[in-house]
Simulated scan of single mutants.
Amino acid sequence: MKYLSILLFFSICLISCEDKDELEKANQYYNSGDYNKAVQFYNKHLEMKPSHEIAIYNRGRAYEELGQYEKAVDDFLKVIDINPRNMGAYLSYGKHFYREKDYENAAFQFEKAYKLNTNSSQAATLLARAFHKSGKVNEAMEYYDIAINNDGENAEAFLYRGALKLHLNQPGGCNDIQMAKNIGYEGAADLYGQYCK
Rank of each mutant, 00 (worst) to 15 (best):
F108D: 12
C174W: 04
N119G: 15
G172K: 00
A38I: 03
L127D: 10
S92D: 02
Y35M: 10
S32F: 05
K101G: 03
G193E: 12
Y192N: 08
Y35G: 04
A113P: 07
E47L: 09
A113L: 12
I183E: 03
S51W: 11
N149K: 07
Q109A: 11
D21A: 15
F110W: 09
P50Q: 01
K95F: 09
H167T: 08
G193L: 12
L46M: 08
G60V: 08
F97C: 08
L46Y: 07
F76M: 01
L7T: 13
A189I: 12
K181R: 08
N182Q: 06
N27Q: 06
Y93T: 03
K44H: 05
G33E: 07
E142T: 03
L66D: 02
I148S: 03
Q122Y: 15
Q68G: 06
L14C: 14
S32Y: 03
Y103T: 05
A155D: 13
I6A: 13
K133Y: 14
S51T: 07
N31A: 02
S121P: 11
F9S: 04
T125V: 12
F97I: 05
G162F: 14
Q40T: 05
Y114Q: 04
Y29Q: 05
Y30W: 10
Y185M: 06
A147R: 01
G94I: 06
E18G: 14
F131W: 13
I177N: 01
E70R: 10
A55H: 01
I146L: 06
N150A: 01
M141I: 06
G152D: 13
F10R: 09
A26L: 04
L91D: 02
M179N: 05
A163E: 15
N36K: 13
K136Y: 07
A124D: 13
L191W: 11
R59I: 09
N150L: 00
Y57K: 04
L159Y: 12
T118M: 13
Y114L: 09
F131A: 12
K165L: 02
L191G: 09
V79I: 03
A130T: 08
Y98H: 07
L8T: 14
Y195W: 11
N117M: 04
E47Q: 13
R85Q: 08
K25H: 11
E18N: 15
F76N: 03
L164W: 10
A180Y: 00
L7P: 05
Y35F: 09
Y192T: 08
P50M: 02
Y192Q: 10
Y103W: 01
K112V: 04
K112L: 08
I146H: 04
